[in-house]
Amino acid sequence: MHPDDTGLTATEARDLRRLAGFMIPADPAFGVPGADDPAIIQDVIATLRRDTADVKLALAALAELAGGSFADLDDAAAEAVAMRLLAENAKPVLVLGRVVLSAYYRDDRVVRSLGREPGAPFPRGHVMPPTDWSLLDPVKTREPFWRKA
C-alpha cells in the first residue's frame, strides 16, 4: 500500500518509520526485528484507520521538535528528538505508541520469540494445566460466614 492511501504523506511515513526504530530497536539477543522493519511498518501504516489523525498530530509534533525533517537528522540528534517526543503523555503520542506496539507484537517473528505460536486465538484456543483442587481443602473447613438477612 502506498503511504498516501492511508492519509500519511511520504514524509510522515518516513519519519514514522525512523521513529519506530528508536521506539523498539532490533535486538539480536532476543532474535527480534525493530519496529522499523519493513513488514511491521507496513502493517502499522495499513491499519491506522481511525487513529490516523492522532498519528499525524504526533508526527507534526515530531517534525516541530526536529526543526524540519526528522528522518534526515543524524542518529544522535534523531534519538534525542524521538525520546523527547515519547516522554510526552499527550494523547497523540500515546496513540502513536499504541499503533506501533499493536503491529509489532503480532508480527510472527516477535510472537515466536515469546515462545508462542503466531495466529488468531480462535479456533485453536489454549490448553490449561490441570487444576489441583486440593488447594480448596482449607477453605472447605470454614463455616458459612455470609450475613443472614
Partner: peptide
C-alpha cells in the same frame, strides 16, 4: 493480558521503556 495490552499499558505507565531497554523490560 496478551502481549499488545501488556506492552501498551507498560509503556503508558513508564514500566516498559522505549529504546534499548524495551525488550528486556517487556519480557
Amino acid at each position: 493480558t496478551g502481549p499488545v495490552t501488556e506492552a501498551v499499558q507498560g509503556a503508558a505507565a513508564g514500566a516498559i521503556p522505549w529504546g534499548p531497554g524495551h525488550h528486556a523490560a517487556f519480557r
